[in-house]
Design a protein around this nucleic acid. Sequence first.
DNA 1: TAGATTGTTAATCGATTAACAATC
DNA 2: TAGATTGTTAATCGATTAACAATC
Lengths: 170, 170
Amino acid sequence: MGISSSQVRQDFFSFGGNGLQGYGYDVEYLHQEIRSILGLDTAHSMIIIGAGSLGHALAKHTNFAKSGFNITAIFDIKSELLGEKINDLEIRHLDSLPEFVSKNRVDIATLTVPENCAGEVAKFVIELGIKALWNFSPVEIITPEDVLIENIHIIDSLIVLGYNLKEIQT
Amino acid sequence: MGISSSQVRQDFFSFGGNGLQGYGYDVEYLHQEIRSILGLDTAHSMIIIGAGSLGHALAKHTNFAKSGFNITAIFDIKSELLGEKINDLEIRHLDSLPEFVSKNRVDIATLTVPENCAGEVAKFVIELGIKALWNFSPVEIITPEDVLIENIHIIDSLIVLGYNLKEIQT
DNA sequence: TAGATTGTTAATCGATTAACAATC
DNA sequence: TAGATTGTTAATCGATTAACAATC
């Protein structure tokens, strides 16, 4: 992965030594330690808002659960989608989100909504007290200080690729 | 976006001054200049390999074309998908990729295949002479020096969110 | 003891920020 | 001329790398 041994040791060092000088690391213990630091051994409850093709793709993805991120509900506003099931999860109307939040713990809200309503939906979700947003829309969403946001701006990555390609092709 | 004026000026400076001291920037000219630097004003031909739910989602996405990234074909190996159309593009068999590449320019190959065959597909694509991969599988793919790769490791972003959430919740 | 490998500090490097000259 | 804003260099900061002591 192009990471130097120095950096690996420095990084481990900052979380406290995990190895034995002159001997090496207990890989299994270290692995568990890193999982614990990253929070991969704790369960997270996650909802998906927006059951378009990207929402569907994420809902069908089984890898998230393996890392402790459990999808607990899917919401949309299109009435023709309501009731449809994805991996045992029924698509619910966004109007029922407040009730869902009051009855269920929601750690993370995934936003796979069209860009023209991403801001509005984010606001709605934040007002319900959800503290972490996983945003797939290309919009820059401003959140209060106590609300986290992680953006997956897919096109940015494609633009980087295109830029580097330009350099290579000349 | 949390970027200082110093940084903006420094960045513009590194590509050559675009403004007028004491007056400001010609925003429209600057915008076009940046588009040109990023290569957003040149067309790229892109194929999608893997017509699963993520492949479908990307194929339906219209924003890529707006930035000059045109999806020109979709490939899969599942025979039951062949012939299905997504946005006017027919799903083709992966076996026909060599012929396609010989007849059409392909700048970028998007990999939305299951992780257990990502490496193999990448190798196949590289051997056909494609110089840029856009990889959505969670696998770390090693490419020759003259082949670019951009990874979208979706789960990494989710793990970052979970990690920061842990900090907040304590 | 010799070799190997981690822990920890110091040196280096690169990116960000600050400062101010240039100039409209 | 005074005010404003960019261009460019220097200072600062943080991350990476190098070095070597500690110790199995």
